[in-house]
Computed example of a mutant assay.
Amino acid sequence: MDWDARFRANDAPWERKGLHPAFEHWRGLGLLQAGKSVYVPGCGRGEEPLALARAGLNVTAIDLSPTAIDWQVARFAEAGLIAHLEAGDALAYRPEAPFDLYWEQTFLCAIPPRLREAYEAGAYAQIRPGGVLLALFMQKEEMGGPPYGCGIPAMRALFPDTRWQWPEDEPAAFPHPGLNAKEELAVALVRR
């Protein structure tokens, strides 16, 4: 997939119009605290990096698409806020210090399933012990992708209890308006 060409052509049906409702959900649970560091892999042209910075978090956002990163840079400049914004491989990125939070939104479901183990290993390395992976797992029955379905049984196998603490509560569901109302399940995984 040529992600940059898709952004240049404004052919990005996975983009939400506005801030993801999980932002307020997780802020209401006290997970988005000012001063924490947060990583947004595959950020695209999402509203979340800027919203996180406005909430006082230290944002790092990476995307393969230079067009998407240029869009983020312009938005941050307009808002007078700073962040580490970089065009590059979000899976391979290793910070100097691990992040407190990891905002997963339409990134895991966009990469080929054969890369999921690399995703989990990267997230485990990128998040500090006790840090939280704020995951939005795309629910999709049909074959193929992207988006690729991230059913909860598969996600429990990918993020095992030996490395991640799963919440006891049922996940909140957020239908995606740009993807035929496919649900994204909000799960906050604590890195052990």
Rank of each mutant, 00 (worst) to 15 (best):
P167A: 08
G122R: 03
R45K: 15
A154R: 05
P171R: 11
V59G: 02
F107T: 13
F174V: 14
R45W: 03
A87I: 00
R94E: 11
R114P: 05
Y148G: 05
P129R: 13
F99N: 01
P129G: 06
D70E: 15
L101D: 05
G80M: 10
T162P: 02
V132E: 01
L133S: 04
A135Q: 09
V59E: 01
A68T: 14
K140F: 10
F137G: 00
Y119D: 02
E120W: 00
A87S: 14
G149Q: 09
P95W: 01
L81E: 04
E120N: 04
A118I: 02
Q105A: 14
V73M: 15
Q139K: 09
R45I: 12
P153Y: 12
W166P: 00
P113T: 08
A135K: 06
V59P: 06
F107L: 12
Y124H: 12
V59S: 01
P147C: 12
P66M: 11
G44L: 03
E168W: 11
I111Y: 06
M143W: 05
G145S: 11
F99C: 00
Y102E: 10
A135F: 08
C109M: 04
A51D: 09
M138T: 12
R128V: 05
T162I: 03
E170V: 14
G149L: 06
P146T: 10
A77D: 15
L81C: 01
E86L: 12
W71G: 14
C43F: 08
P129Y: 05
Q126V: 01
R114E: 09
Y148P: 04
G131F: 01
R94G: 03
Y148T: 04
D70H: 10
P129N: 10
G131P: 00
P129I: 04
P129S: 07
A121H: 05
P41S: 13
P171L: 14
A157K: 14
P112Q: 03
E168H: 10
R54S: 07
A87H: 05
A118Y: 06
R54I: 04
G44K: 07
T162C: 06
T60C: 11
R163H: 02
Y119A: 08
Q165V: 13
A92W: 07
L136M: 15
Y119K: 03
M138E: 08
I82V: 13
D100P: 02
I111T: 05
A68C: 14
E141H: 14
L134E: 09
E104V: 08
R45N: 11
V59K: 00
L52K: 06
E141K: 13
L101P: 02
A123E: 00
L136V: 11
A172W: 13
A53G: 00
P129W: 03
A173D: 15
T106I: 13
R54T: 01
R156M: 13
G80Y: 12
E48V: 10
L57W: 00
G145I: 09
F76T: 13
I127Y: 00
I152N: 03
G131L: 03
G46K: 04
G151W: 07
W166Y: 05
A55K: 01
M143C: 03
E47F: 15
G145W: 06
Y102G: 09
G44Q: 02
P175N: 15
G88L: 10
E78P: 05
D161K: 08
L101A: 00
E141F: 13
C150I: 07
A61I: 03
T162V: 12
I127W: 01
T106L: 12
W103G: 01
T67L: 07
